[in-house]
Simulated assay, not measured.
Amino acid sequence: MTDRVSLVPDGFEVPLELAGDGFRLEPLGEQHNERDLAAWSGSIDHIRATPGYPDGSWPPPEGMTAERNLADLARHARDFADRFGFTYSVLDGDDVIGCVYIYPSHERPDGVEVSSWVRADRAELDGPLYEAVSRWLAEVWPFEPGRIVYAAR
Score class of each variant (00 low, 15 high):
residue 84 F to V: 02
residue 43 S to I: 04
residue 145 P to M: 09
residue 90 V to G: 02
residue 140 V to A: 06
residue 40 W to L: 12
residue 76 H to M: 07
residue 111 G to S: 12
residue 46 H to G: 11
residue 24 R to N: 08
residue 18 L to I: 00
residue 88 Y to L: 13
residue 131 E to I: 11
residue 108 R to A: 12
residue 32 H to F: 02
residue 9 P to I: 01
residue 3 D to K: 05
residue 98 G to I: 02
residue 106 H to G: 15
residue 102 I to G: 10
residue 95 D to N: 10
residue 32 H to I: 02
residue 9 P to A: 00
residue 146 G to W: 04
residue 127 G to L: 12
residue 136 W to N: 06
residue 12 F to Q: 07
residue 146 G to A: 07
residue 35 R to V: 04
residue 18 L to Y: 01
residue 129 L to I: 09
residue 72 D to C: 09
residue 131 E to K: 09
residue 33 N to Q: 02
residue 43 S to E: 07
residue 73 L to N: 07
residue 7 L to T: 01
residue 83 R to T: 11
residue 16 L to S: 00
residue 24 R to T: 04
residue 13 E to P: 13
residue 42 G to R: 02
residue 81 A to F: 12
residue 43 S to M: 14
residue 95 D to G: 09
residue 1 M to D: 10
residue 71 A to V: 01
residue 145 P to I: 09
residue 73 L to K: 02
residue 24 R to H: 01
residue 14 V to Y: 13
residue 14 V to D: 10
residue 125 L to R: 03
residue 151 A to R: 11
residue 136 W to T: 00
residue 2 T to A: 08
residue 57 S to Q: 11
residue 104 P to M: 04
residue 70 L to H: 06
residue 62 E to R: 03
residue 40 W to Y: 15
residue 26 E to A: 07
residue 51 P to C: 11
residue 53 Y to W: 14
residue 71 A to K: 13
residue 92 D to I: 06
residue 147 R to N: 06
residue 8 V to I: 10
residue 40 W to D: 15
residue 48 R to Q: 09
residue 87 T to W: 04
residue 91 L to E: 08
residue 11 G to Y: 00
residue 36 D to G: 09
residue 15 P to Y: 01
residue 144 E to W: 13
residue 90 V to F: 00
residue 148 I to Q: 05
residue 102 I to Y: 01
residue 101 Y to T: 04
residue 116 S to Q: 13
residue 140 V to N: 13
residue 69 N to A: 07
residue 9 P to K: 04
residue 71 A to Q: 07
residue 69 N to L: 00
residue 80 F to L: 15
residue 6 S to W: 11
residue 81 A to G: 13
residue 41 S to V: 03
residue 42 G to P: 01
residue 27 P to T: 05
residue 105 S to F: 03
residue 70 L to A: 07
residue 81 A to R: 12
residue 1 M to H: 14
residue 62 E to I: 07
residue 153 R to A: 15
residue 72 D to T: 14
residue 139 E to M: 05
residue 120 A to Y: 06
residue 61 P to C: 05
residue 142 P to L: 10
residue 112 V to F: 04
residue 127 G to D: 11
residue 36 D to C: 05
residue 103 Y to S: 11
residue 1 M to G: 13
residue 93 G to A: 08
residue 85 G to A: 13
residue 150 Y to S: 06
residue 131 E to A: 14
residue 120 A to G: 06
residue 81 A to M: 06
residue 125 L to M: 03
residue 68 R to S: 11
residue 140 V to M: 13
residue 152 A to F: 11
residue 10 D to N: 03
residue 87 T to I: 09
residue 99 C to I: 01
